[in-house]
């Protein structure tokens, strides 16, 4: 039974060997994923730049979630088509990868009465830090996501938006050893939230990307995506159909072709991002 446990490691040593600072945080090349029935992801290639907020869009069944799951490791296709800081995803040890890439879930099923602060502190689990340092980071990140006033509330009693922000603080804690260069993946982070909460969560994500993080999320709402994204990846039938800034990707013709729906598009009078209206 003794050899079941292997926990002692030298983080710095491994990190130096794996981390290539000049490489793209996340590079996906020719990635495909096929189940017995169908091809869910079909020859997708892109690479993220540090400090960008990228949104994956597309109709239902376009392969958005599968793509995100391949990157997060929930699905696996065996090859070396996903590279993180230059190294194939599969050769990263779990605990080191967790320090550089975190995933914000759609919702979490936690039913035990942890306080919000304790949930955020769980993010420090894989970090080579002392308890007091984790406590300090917890405090900082809860302030950053505006949940410090909820610190001693029981997590199950929070609202959907409050829970999402608590988890955001948790994944920020998890990425706090990545020197502002972490990768944050989000799977429809706003699906259960009201208008104000949606914008609160997304502007927090944008702040993080502006500090140097790479943020990649799946969204359904074209307008939210157009407002917050630096770059859009539009998927259709498993393929990456369009890749570019919101102003180049979102056009009446593109939306009609990919979603099969007619829209009219205006430019926002002040911020100049496209605003999509159903025609």
């Amino acid at each position: 039974m003794l050899n079941l446990f292997t926990s002692s490691y030298d983080t710095k040593l491994n990190f130096a060997a794996l981390h290539t600072p000049s490489a793209s945080p996340l590079q996906v090349s020719d990635l495909s994923y096929t189940t017995a029935k169908q091809t869910l992801v079909d020859q997708v290639s892109f690479s993220l730049k540090a400090g960008e907020l990228t949104v994956i869009l597309g109709p239902n069944g376009a392969g958005k979630s599968s793509l995100l799951k391949l990157i997060s490791g929930e699905l696996s296709q065996g090859g070396h088509n996903i590279r993180i800081f230059g190294q194939p995803r599969d050769i990263w040890p779990d605990h080191l990868l967790a320090q550089h890439m975190a995933i914000l879930p759609q919702s979490s099923q936690l039913s035990f009465a942890f306080s919000a602060r304790e949930v955020v502190a769980l993010g420090g689990l894989s970090l080579p830090l002392k308890q007091s340092e984790v406590q300090y980071l917890t405090q900082e990140n809860m302030a950053a996501t505006d949940v410090l006033h909820l610190a001693d509330r029981a997590y199950p009693s929070l609202s959907g938006g409050e829970k999402q922000r608590v988890h955001l603080a948790r994944v920020l804690t998890q990425l706090s050893c990545a020197n502002q260069h972490g990768i944050l993946l989000l799977d429809e982070p706003t699906s259960a939230l009201d208008l104000a909460q949606q914008h609160k969560v997304l502007s927090l994500c944008r702040q993080m990307s502006q500090k140097g993080m790479s943020v990649l999320m799946v969204l359904h709402d074209l307008n939210l995506a157009a407002q917050y994204a630096d770059r859009l990846l539009l998927m259709q039938g498993g393929k990456l159909a369009l890749d570019g800034s919101p102003n180049t990707v979102i056009s009446t013709a593109n939306i009609a072709q990919i979603y099969g729906h007619k829209v009219s598009i205006k430019s926002h009078p002040i911020h100049h991002y496209p605003v999509i209206m159903s025609a």
Partner: peptide, 8 residues
């Protein structure tokens, strides 16, 4: 899934 993403 969350635990896996936290490196466990």
């Amino acid at each position: 899934a969350e635990a896996r993403h936290m490196g466990i």
